[in-house]
């Protein structure tokens, strides 16, 4: 394996994705990022793709560009995500479609196309993002948590199908992180959520990269189909 590993991160314009892109570019990885809008990230190790990851044609085109540029992909982090907080009885079906489209459909597409590239070199690390809202069964998060449950099941099943190609697939589930994803959530709701966690504090970006760093290590070949939550829930 070459020294410079190629990593794809979705949703890199802001929030966790932006931090991940800057962190891995700073570590010397060749970072391929994407979002629907342009990014102002400046790094010689970073390239940005304008792509809607829910659109199959755009995803395939992005992977075609990565294949032409690097001829490989070592790591994929499915970071792009949407959240919604609403009472079940008040949830429009359009919200269900939008949340599942970004959180599940896009993850499926990026996992599938990543694995096709990774299998050429019999090595790959796929990291999906879930949430503590899944094990905590948080009221008001039925749709968001359900979409992430689907991501967890996808992660565990494709881990079994892809390990023959040297590809591991795992997920990390952060406690709330201070990003745009939760900016609409009232402070009382966040405080209430944190009280339900053994570790009663918000997660930070470094907590997330700590888990991802473990998953992507070449030595972690035997770590697959795992979901690691932050904050002490299981």
């Amino acid at each position: 394996m070459s020294e410079r590993r190629v990593i794809l991160i979705t949703g890199t314009r802001k929030g966790i994705g932006r931090y991940l892109a800057e962190y891995y570019a700073g570590q010397g990885f060749m970072v391929e990022g994407c979002s629907r809008n342009p990014s102002d990230q400046q790094s010689q190790n970073y390239s940005h793709h304008l792509a809607d990851v829910t659109d199959e044609a755009q995803v395939i085109e992005m992977f075609s560009e990565i294949q032409k540029k690097h001829g490989r992909l070592d790591i994929a982090i499915n970071n792009a995500g949407l959240a919604s907080l609403n009472h079940f009885l008040l949830t429009p079906v359009s919200t269900v479609d939008a949340i599942f489209s970004v959180n599940f459909r896009a993850t499926f597409l990026v996992c599938r196309e990543s694995a096709k590239l990774m299998k050429k070199h019999n090595f790959g690390r796929i990291i999906n993002i879930t949430t503590v809202a899944v094990p905590m069964l948080l009221a008001g998060e039925a749709i968001y948590a359900s979409s992430k449950s689907a991501v967890e099941t996808l992660t565990k099943i494709i881990a079994r199908e892809l390990i023959q190609f040297g590809i591991t697939c795992n997920a990390v589930g952060p406690a709330p992180v201070d990003t745009d994803l939760i900016k609409g959530v009232p402070k009382e709701k966040i405080d209430q959520l944190l009280k339900g966690l053994p570790v009663q504090k918000m997660a930070n970006f470094q907590d997330i990269t700590n888990v991802i760093d473990f998953f992507i290590k070449p030595e972690s070949q035997n770590i697959t189909a795992q979901v690691i939550y932050l904050g002490g829930v299981s």
Binding site: A57, I60, S64, Q67, K116, K119
Partner: peptide, 17 residues
């Protein structure tokens, strides 16, 4: 693997998905 490989060859050579 055969099916994936053929799909990739078609994409690379003919730009057809």
């Amino acid at each position: 693997s055969l099916i994936v490989d053929i799909e990739q060859r078609l994409k690379e050579k003919l730009n057809i998905h």
